[in-house]
């Protein structure tokens, strides 16, 4: 029944990704729908990093995307590899890769969030001092 648990997670993560990635594409690429131009600028990216809601969003996207993608890859590889031990080794390698990428990605998001909020605070402090 372990596989049932993993597969249910895979399907639920897939369904959630449809909405999360849809939103991600809307604010990065399909912005023309809302009359705005190219959204891929450094200042807009920093603006997003400064908002806690985007931090949660990035980490959710990262975790769900990695789980859905790497489970899919494990499924494909386990159908191509016929030796049971090799299948287990592949599953362990993919889990480790997933955890490392998740740790790296979420750490970077935290740092970027901290930098962006720090900068925003500095700007607002400067504004107060100048004002």
């Amino acid at each position: 029944m372990k596989e049932t648990k993993y597969w249910t997670g895979h399907i639920l993560a897939g369904a959630a990704l449809l909405f999360l990635l849809g939103f991600h594409f809307i604010y990065t690429h399909i912005a023309f729908l809302f009359g705005t131009e190219d959204n891929i600028t450094e200042s807009l990216s920093k603006g997003r990093d400064a908002q806690p809601v985007f931090l949660v969003f990035f980490i959710a996207l990262l975790g769900l995307g990695l789980y859905h993608g790497l489970y899919g890859l494990k499924n494909i590889l386990s159908e191509l590899i016929t030796c049971e031990n090799c299948r287990k080794i592949v599953a362990i390698i993919l889990t480790v890769v997933g955890i490392l990428l998740f740790a790296f990605g979420s750490y970077s998001s935290f740092v970027a969030h901290k930098n962006a909020t720090g900068m925003k605070n500095t700007v607002s402090r400067l504004e107060v001092n100048n004002g």
Partner: peptide, 11 residues
């Protein structure tokens, strides 16, 4: 996976 790496560099 590439995207995670490239965008993480913003930190």
């Amino acid at each position: 996976m590439m995207h995670i790496f490239v965008t993480s560099l913003r930190a």
